[in-house]
């Protein structure tokens, strides 16, 4: 069955803070959505990420060496804050899951088909 990446987009400077009522509500909604994905067999994997400021970009520099830079690859105002990989029968079924994901985390969700 086709797989799709559902990525969640945040402002680059978001903080992980689960103490606010908003964050608690969103976490509960996402938890319920995850359980539903697992029950329906659509679940493949999901994860929330630490803020983009914690990222390191690594490049292979030939001859086996690597170079590293501090921070995310794309210097944009919005960064990926988490993602799901889901299985769905077709585009419409996947879009329906994406819509529920966006409602659960209360943020925009980008959907892309997994190649292969």
């Amino acid at each position: 069955m086709p797989q799709y990446l559902l990525s969640v987009w945040h402002d680059a400077d978001y903080e992980l803070d689960f103490s606010t009522p908003d964050a608690q509500r969103q976490a509960a909604q996402v938890g319920a959505f995850n359980e539903e994905l697992q029950r329906s067999g659509s679940w493949v994997f999901a994860a929330g990420l630490h803020p983009a400021s914690s990222a390191t970009v690594v490049r292979a520099s030939g001859g086996g060496g690597v170079s590293m830079t501090d921070g995310p690859y794309a210097e944009t105002k919005e960064q990926m804050g988490g993602f799901w990989i889901v299985e769905a029968a077709d585009l419409d079924a996947a879009l329906q899951l994406a819509g529920r994901a966006a409602a659960a985390c209360e943020r925009p969700v980008e959907m892309r088909p997994v190649h292969g």
Binding site: P2, A89, D90, L91, D92, A94, P113, H115
Partner: peptide
Amino acid sequence: KLHDNHASYRIPRAAE
């Protein structure tokens, strides 16, 4: 895009 996203060739259900 339609091909890569596995778009189905179908008539939407009444609810959609």
